[in-house]
Amino acid sequence: MGAIYKKEMRAYFTTPVGYIFLAAMLLISAAVFSYTTLQQATWNTRTYFMAMVFVFVVLVPVLTMKSFSEERRTKTEQMLLTSPVGLPSLVLAKYFAAMTMMAGVLALTAVYYIPFYAHAEPETAILFGDIIALLLVGSAFIAVGLLISSLTENQMTACVLTIVVILVFLVASFGNAYIDVYAVRAVLGWISVFSRFGNFMNGIFDIGATLYYLSITAVAIFLTVRVYEKRRWG
């Protein structure tokens, strides 16, 4: 597992993928951050964190689109799958590599809060909670991205599909105001990644939401393993 993790990390930085992800992420988040807080003369980060979830929709696929599809296209997966490393380790190694990129970039964005602390007294706990919430959302998206990447040989297909699927997850509850049937509203609300994000923004560490994001991660990783097993059994 360690070997594949290291290989993935190296692949991020020996190809443009890692740099594109880091650069785009930092550029967009910095712009959004300064627009929503500094220029609005507020240290309320609510809008910023909400916006970041949408930034993930476009940037998480950058991390995951290649991970399995490219191995499949270049047949390097034969080497991984015939090595003594088990399938779960293989999938987890790729998941952790993408998570490392995600955590790394979120750590870098910590620089943004320096002016806050210089001029005011923001609630550190809320900031932390929000960053962890972002990480959880990122984790769910990454796992879904990996799953989709394992389904196709073409990384562009993987990318577009991932964006669509994540977006559906995200905005599932947006139409709820116009839906009369409670059951439908409940289901859409349950699916929606976004509706669960709210509590974190209000400074509440939502255990239910945390479990929800972790469940999506676990299910998607499990399904990715199953996809490979299925292909093996034909």
């Binding site: 692949a11 020996t14 270049t74 390097t76 034969q78 080497m79």
Partner: peptide
């Protein structure tokens, strides 16, 4: 394998 499983960026 038939097609060598090479990571060409390494």
């Amino acid at each position: 394998p038939e097609q060598p499983p090479l990571y060409i960026d390494m």
